[in-house]
Deep mutational scan, measured.
Amino acid sequence: MATGGRRGAAAAPLLVAVAALLLGAAGHLYPGEVCPGMDIRNNLTRLHELENCSVIEGHLQILLMFKTRPEDFRDLSFPKLIMITDYLLLFRVYGLESLKDLFPNLTVIRGSRLFFNYALVIFEMVHLKELGLYNLMNITRGSVRIEKNNELCYLATIDWSRILDSVEDNYIVLNKDDNEECGDICPGTAKGKTNCPATVINGQFVERCWTHSHCQKVCPTICKSHGCTAEGLCCHSECLGNCSQPDDPTKCVACRNFYLDGRCVETCPPPYYHFQDWRCVNFSFCQDLHHKCKNSRRQGCHQYVIHNNKCIPECPSGYTMNSSNLLCTPCLGPCPKVCHLLEGEKTIDSVTSAQELRGCTVINGSLIINIRGGNNLAAELEANLGLIEEISGYLKIRRSYALVSLSFFRKLRLIRGETLEIGNYSFYALDNQNLRQLWDWSKHNLTITQGKLFFHYNPKLCLSEIHKMEEVSGTKGRQERNDIALKTNGDQASCENELLKFSYIRTSFDKI
């Protein structure tokens, strides 16, 4: 039985969820670079991206490699990797027998973001014989899940209580170790020597080791999670996991709180800001991140802002960003909400898709409305799209047979046209069989910064309504002859009103 693990408890099935942008060198404390989270699957090609990484700022997932063999891993080693800020997950990587050479110096898994409450997941690794993470000293947050690894031993010899604050939620089941077939031998045991430290858990006094050649490092209890030197002297209180010299914040392997210019500090002093819960960055760093993602459509890219001495992905609820200094300031009234469309555009074809934009005031991208039916549609669209004030790209209304009016965009005031449909149009209306009105132009103002209007096959939309939009939106004169079809717009509506004058002759039985 794995020490510190839980057996036999019912657990939810383990679901495996399925960018080499360097964020800056980590400095003297770390020998390499800070790398983003990685999802490495199918083959070993991307694994080489770990070569210079000291910190993975995010998670590391290595999974679904069915053609790899043990010899493929023999020359692979990433000794610079010290810390993973989120979680480490391995799933069905064939041929991998140990992690001792792959990650010989991995010391800390912070667990800032977890995989279903777990910071370390080893699942269905069919050839893994031992973990071998002999320098792993601290899992700051989260638990361990090690399950269905039929060859995995050296679990009962690990004292997880020396690595985690609590072992109650560890789930370590259905491994070879369960069948008591392992016969784990710690260093020196074969020669009758006791080389590794022994600890007591559940009444068992057991030597602690990761492999037959690597003991588990056990520091004096007084050192807590700070770690200790090879001689057993406690590291500085700002260290986490390990250090090369005692009581020196510049000799830590990793930091308990924050890293700044080669030393570990309790908090980031001005003019620095907390970033990702582990390091200090200056304003320029946060500003660069903001600008890199301002026009990016890459998933996970955030326009970072500053709030409460932190550089964070977005302002919290009730705050909006001051564009001059990136500071989050309290909103006066309802907060603006910028919604970034991942692929640059979004099609609204149902109430469900409209709900995804609920509360958005600025759309960074283009909207395509293609709704053919739905219950209580006008009210639903207004509830979900009615706060949109600005669209950076274009607005396209296409084959939306259920629409009679666009009044559900009740606050839309600006279409920038930074991206144009077919390279020309910022407003595009095609084949809307029941569209009769755009907006009530006596109450609604709309500016279209650039781009043209396109109207074709809107049989109940009168040309007068379209011409009014040209005047109000500032697009009059931009359109070419064929942009607004004269014969297919309003051709099934009563669009022309003329005053009919009647004269009559009164007659009676005795007068003409």
Rank of each mutant, 00 (worst) to 15 (best):
His28Tyr: 09
Leu29Met: 12
Leu29Ala: 10
Val34Ser: 04
Val34Lys: 10
Val34Ala: 15
Val34Gly: 09
Pro36Leu: 08
Gly37Lys: 03
Asp39Asn: 15
Asp39Val: 05
Arg41Ile: 06
Asn43Met: 08
Leu44Ile: 09
Leu47Ser: 08
Leu47Met: 09
His48Phe: 07
Glu49Thr: 14
Glu49Gly: 04
Leu50Ala: 07
Leu50Ser: 02
Leu50Thr: 02
Ser54Asn: 15
Glu57Gln: 13
Leu60Val: 06
Ile62Leu: 06
Ile62Gln: 00
Ile62Pro: 00
Ile62Met: 05
Leu63Arg: 08
Lys67Asp: 08
Thr68Gly: 09
Arg69Trp: 05
Pro70Val: 15
Asp72Asn: 15
Phe73Ile: 13
Phe73Thr: 07
Arg74Thr: 14
Lys80Cys: 05
Leu81Gln: 00
Leu81Asp: 00
Met83Val: 04
Thr85Val: 05
Leu88Thr: 00
Leu88Val: 07
Leu89Lys: 01
Leu89Ala: 02
Gly95Arg: 05
Leu96Ile: 08
Glu97Phe: 15
Ser98Phe: 02
Ser98Gly: 02
Lys100Gly: 11
Leu102Pro: 01
Asn105Ile: 02
Leu106Ala: 00
Val108His: 12
Arg110Leu: 09
Ser112Thr: 12
Ser112Lys: 11
Asn117Val: 06
Ala119Gln: 01
Val121Ala: 06
Ile122Val: 08
Ile122Tyr: 00
Ile122Gln: 01
Ile122Ala: 08
Phe123Tyr: 09
Met125Pro: 01
His127Ala: 12
His127Ser: 15
Leu128His: 01
Lys129Trp: 07
Glu130Tyr: 12
Asn135His: 06
Leu136Arg: 01
Met137Arg: 09
Thr140His: 11
Arg141Asp: 15
Gly142Lys: 01
Ser143Pro: 10
Val144Gln: 01
Glu147Ala: 11
Lys148Trp: 03
Asn150Thr: 07
Glu151Ala: 12
Glu151Gly: 14
Thr157Phe: 05
Asp159Glu: 13
Asp159Gln: 12
Trp160Asp: 01
Arg162Tyr: 10
Ile163Ala: 01
Ile163Gly: 01
Leu164Met: 14
Asp165Gly: 12
Asp165Asn: 05
Val167Ala: 11
Asp169His: 13
Asn170Pro: 06
Asn170Ser: 09
Asn170Arg: 07
Tyr171Ala: 12
Val173Tyr: 03
Asn175Pro: 13
Lys176Thr: 15
Asp178Asn: 15
Asp178Pro: 07
Asp178Cys: 09
Asn179Ser: 06
Asn179Gly: 13
Asn179Ala: 09
Glu181Thr: 10
Ile185Asn: 13
Ile185Tyr: 06
Cys186Ile: 12
Ala190Cys: 06
Thr194Ser: 10
Thr194Asn: 14
Pro197Trp: 05
Pro197Asn: 15
Pro197Cys: 05
Thr199Ser: 07
Val200Met: 10
Asn202Phe: 11
Asn202Val: 04
Gly203Ala: 11
Gln204Ile: 03
Trp210Thr: 06
Thr211Tyr: 06
His212Gly: 05
Ser213Asn: 07
His214Pro: 07
Lys217Glu: 14
Lys217Tyr: 05
Lys217Thr: 15
Val218Glu: 09
Cys219Thr: 02
Cys223Leu: 02
Lys224Ser: 10
Lys224His: 08
His226Asp: 10
Cys228Thr: 02
Cys228Ile: 03
Thr229Pro: 09
His236Trp: 01
His236Tyr: 03
Glu238Lys: 03
Cys239Val: 01
Cys239Met: 00
Leu240Trp: 01
Asn242Met: 08
Cys243Asp: 01
Cys243Phe: 01
Asp247Ser: 02
Asp248Lys: 03
Asp248His: 02
Pro249His: 01
Pro249Ser: 06
Thr250Arg: 02
Thr250Lys: 01
Thr250Ser: 06
Cys255Thr: 00
Cys255Asp: 01
Arg256Pro: 01
Arg256Phe: 06
Asn257Gln: 09
Phe258Cys: 05
Phe258Val: 05
Tyr259Asp: 14
Tyr259Met: 11
Leu260Gln: 01
Leu260His: 03
Gly262Arg: 04
Gly262Ile: 02
Gly262Trp: 02
Arg263Ile: 00
Arg263Glu: 00
Arg263Val: 01
Glu266Val: 10
Thr267Tyr: 14
Cys268Gly: 00
Pro269Glu: 00
Pro270Trp: 11
Pro271Gly: 08
Tyr273Phe: 15
His274Asn: 15
Phe275Leu: 09
Trp278Cys: 02
Cys280Arg: 00
Asn282Met: 08
Cys286Val: 04
Gln287Ala: 15
Gln287His: 06
Gln287Thr: 11
Asp288Met: 15
Asp288Trp: 05
Asp288Val: 07
Asn295His: 12
Ser296Thr: 14
Gln299Ile: 11
Gln299Lys: 15
Gly300Met: 05
Gly300Pro: 09
Gly300Ser: 10
Gly300Cys: 07
Cys301Asn: 02
Cys301Ile: 00
His302Glu: 08
His302Pro: 07
His302Ser: 11
Gln303Glu: 14
Gln303Asn: 08
Gln303Thr: 10
Gln303Cys: 14
Val305Arg: 05
Val305Pro: 02
His307Val: 04
Asn308Ile: 05
Asn309Pro: 02
Lys310Tyr: 08
Lys310Asn: 08
Lys310Met: 05
Cys311Gln: 00
Glu314Pro: 08
Glu314Gly: 05
Ser317Trp: 14
Ser317Gly: 09
Ser317Phe: 15
Gly318Leu: 05
Gly318Arg: 03
Gly318Val: 02
Tyr319His: 07
Asn322Gly: 06
Thr329Gly: 11
Pro330Asp: 13
Leu332Ala: 07
Leu332Cys: 08
Leu332Ile: 05
Gly333Glu: 03
Pro334Gly: 06
Pro334Asn: 07
Cys335His: 07
Cys335Lys: 01
Pro336Lys: 06
